[in-house]
Design a protein around this nucleic acid. Structure first.
Lengths: 107, 107
DNA sequence: CTTTTACTTAACCAATAGGTTATATATTGC
DNA sequence: GCAATATATAACCTATTGGTTAAGTAAAAG
């Protein structure tokens, strides 16, 4: 069962620290592949593959300017991910409340 | 480079629709493995494996009651995931604003 | 038109993921 | 103690992931 749905693609793309770092870099503005690759000790093709994963999830788009292919952050899928998580917000609040109550009890 | 950090484990766990469905079920309350497996057409061991992934990410905890091992939702890691996404919130707002402005322009 | 720069694609590899069936373990109920 | 129920583990298979090196393409610059 390949995870073809969009939310799975998004979470899957976010599940790698290199890819999250790339997104963090793109949050500061457009960047070329070489610029994006610079902080990492992996090869350019490896970065290309990470970018392809991010593009497939719709998190990054590709421009063209001479021989550069500047990448841009596309945040829309992140919004979907956040909306999915929103539905669980009450649980971590509840659980924190219970923890707080318990610690209060202990005193 | 195996993704050992906690955020990667969380996003990775969320990247599968079966596991998200399990979490959704657990949001309605504790459930046994058999109960959790019921909606899916996969075998019990497959469900067991999904549960192990969720437990490894700290999203689910395991109780014991007679021969049952009821699972419970643990929402804390979801909070971390949301906080990571929070930092991008302004981007999807910005991009929506730009889109709105553009559509306004077109009229 | 050749070289340099900036990528991308192909071919390969080892490790992981997600599934299976078959076998073990633990607890309850007769 | 023995059978039934609930779950876990083992052994196996295939596809995907994340990396590599080597070869291909595209635009700019000499």
């Amino acid at each position: 069962m390949p995870a073809t749905d969009s939310l799975s693609a998004t979470f899957s793309a976010l599940a790698d620290p290199t890819r999250r770092a790339i997104l963090a870099r793109l949050a500061t503005g457009e960047a070329t592949v070489t610029e994006l690759a610079e902080p990492f000790e992996i090869s350019m093709p490896a970065v290309s593959k990470h970018l392809k994963v991010l593009e497939h999830a719709g998190l990054v788009s590709r421009g063209r300017e001479a021989q550069w292919r500047p990448r841009r952050l596309e945040a829309a899928p992140l919004k979907d991910a956040q909306e999915w998580l929103d539905r669980y917000q009450r649980f971590w609040n509840d659980q924190l409340d219970r923890l707080t109550a318990f610690l209060e009890e202990e005193k």
